[in-house]
Design a protein around this nucleic acid. Structure first.
Length: 223
DNA sequence: CGAATTTGACCCGCGC
DNA sequence: GCGCGGGTCAAATTCG
């Protein structure tokens, strides 16, 4: 049994997605709380489908949003274990498209359309863009982990073959299009699967007491 | 009373 | 072309 939820999700959705993982895959991280989680879940488990780009633990740690988080993770990794970040060619395409989208301007075509047509066009454009995504799994009693950003819930859906609803959140920051989905694992309701989509264009909204200015840049690497 | 959440309706992509 | 299922919208409701 090498697949764990996360893998399955990528099979369902061929959308480019970044994964962090333990290395080798079956080597689970335990007793490690997720980023910025104050609740101290019992286990933290990140997985990846392949290992095109193995990263030293320090590389991942340096991308975390605050020294506190890095310290937390580092202490729990407890060694020079490697992590992997999948960045296939498809994934590079996604990053490029995202940047293009963020930098693009209105093309003027909308001027010819009515209000609802414009709305539809916007929806289509939104759905066409495949934002970079990654997900991770945590064992936690709370669904929404405190990752330093402020989220607004915009939807909830019961997904087929699962008894737990999936919640949809959007970053509350203006011009930031990052979204995340949160759902509980059907096989093990104690596990929470969080999927991030997109990259924040700003630093975490509520300051953690030990955050530093340079963190925002590092943070962009992560999401 | 404004902000956040809930929830049913709607839309789109995809498989058949 | 049709139906299913996931994702989003937006009005209604709840919360602080």
């Amino acid at each position: 049994m090498q697949n764990q939820g996360l893998f399955e999700e990528q099979q369902e959705m061929p959308t480019p997605m970044g994964f962090f993982s333990t290395f080798p895959p079956n080597n689970n991280i335990t007793s490690c709380p997720p980023l910025g989680c104050h609740q101290s879940p019992k286990a933290f488990n990140i997985a990846a489908p392949d290992h095109h780009h193995a990263l030293p633990t320090e590389t991942l740690l340096s991308s975390l949003s605050s020294p506190k988080h890095r310290e937390h993770l580092a202490s729990d990794f407890g060694g020079p274990r490697l992590l992997s970040l999948q960045r296939s060619s498809a994934n590079f395409w996604a990053w490029g498209e995202l940047n293009e989208c963020l930098g693009s301007k209105k093309n003027g075509v909308d001027d010819h359309l009515g209000v609802s047509a414009m709305k539809m066009k916007r929806i289509k454009a939104r759905r066409k863009v495949r934002e970079p995504r990654f997900c991770f799994k945590t064992m936690s009693e709370v669904d929404v982990l405190d990752d330093g950003y402020k989220w607004r819930k915009y939807g909830q859906k019961v997904v087929k073959n699962t008894q737990h609803p999936r919640s949809y959140y959007r970053c509350t920051q203006d011009n930031c299009r990052v979204k995340k989905r949160v759902e509980r694992l059907a096989e093990d309701p104690r596990m929470v699967i969080t999927t991030y989509e997109g990259r924040h264009v700003h630093s975490p909204s509520h300051d953690l007491d030990d955050s530093q200015p340079t963190d925002s840049q590092l943070n962009n690497f992560f999401w």
